[in-house]
């Protein structure tokens, strides 16, 4: 048993390391959030990073334990060196790091414009992750729809509606500790749930992972999948699926778009000069 596996068995069997990681993440988020004149953002970034790093380690170790070191083609600590040679995992790790980091930046920066730009980067990361999964269409669509349309509109509104300097409400948070802790708890719960479902360590004669996991690792399954969801003609597959099985959903979505269009126009039209005038008079 390698050092990694040993570390993993000691860490993963009780669930407190996950809790610790989540707690670090929550504390970091709290420190990062705008809290008036209070300082500590750098510390927050560090704490947050520490939490995330612990989480990464736990996830990897969990995988090692679940799959068994021999059958696992990911050998984290040794692989780290090979990853530097731009291996497959390195791409994933980079994308994941960019996504999560820019997401954190996006919700913690004070200037809304910065937030929006960080969010754009986050979207890029997500799109990259989509592509990494083989979901080509989604990757492109995310960039086009989100980064191209939604985000630009938001920036447009921001330009229209942002006062000079930092508005007071951008320098304050509502119940920052509470919400950070709650989010941390949620992340911890989700991770532990996933971990307990996917990475049950082998005990006695029981196999490491559930049987249905083993079925998904066969060659036949991979062959089947490369004909289907990982097909070269991925887009054709989506189209076939979308316009046959989900035709009604597509129609409903189209109608929804139309309704939203009309609704947005109607709402925007109701903004009259009188509204602002009365506000000023009062």
């Amino acid at each position: 048993m390698s050092a990694a596996a040993l570390l993993a068995t000691t860490l993963i069997t009780p669930q407190w390391p996950y809790a610790l990681a989540a707690l670090l993440f929550a504390a970091g988020m709290w420190l990062l959030l705008p809290r008036g004149a209070a300082r500590g953002r750098r510390l927050g970034a560090g704490v947050c990073l520490a939490g995330l790093a612990l989480l990464t380690l736990l996830v990897h170790c969990g995988m090692v334990v679940a799959c068994g070191e021999e059958s696992c083609d990911v050998k984290w600590l040794p692989a780290l060196s090979t990853s530097l040679g731009l291996g497959e995992d390195f791409v994933f790790l980079t994308l994941a790091a960019v996504t999560v980091a820019s997401a954190i930046a996006s919700v913690t920066f004070r200037k809304p414009v910065y937030c929006a730009i960080w969010f754009a980067l986050c979207l890029m990361g997500v799109a990259g992750l989509f592509l990494y999964q083989g979901a080509q269409f989604l990757g492109v669509a995310t960039i086009v729809v989100y980064a191209g349309a939604i985000l630009v509109t938001i920036l447009f509104v921001l330009m229209l509606a942002t006062p000079e300097g930092h508005a007071y409400y951008d320098r304050l948070s509502w119940e920052a500790p509470l919400s950070s802790v709650l989010a941390g708890v949620l992340v911890g719960l989700l991770t532990i749930t996933t971990a307990s479902a996917l990475t049950t360590p082998p005990t006695g004669d029981k196999p490491a992972a559930p049987a249905w996991l083993a079925a998904k690792t066969t060659d036949a399954y991979h062959a089947e999948r490369s004909k289907n969801i990982l097909n070269d003609n991925h887009l054709a597959g989506i189209g076939r699926e979308l316009f046959s099985k989900h035709l009604i959903a597509v129609e409903v979505a189209g109608t929804l778009l139309l309704v939203a269009l009309v609704g947005a126009v109607a709402i925007a039209q109701s903004i009259g000069p009188t509204a602002s005038a009365t506000k000023r008079d009062s």
Partner: peptide
Amino acid sequence: VQFYALAMVLGLALLIGTLLVWKV
């Protein structure tokens, strides 16, 4: 508004926590 969102998330966390305790 945010209080209501908080309450929703609290409920969600409770549900998942219950599930976890139940299963694991």
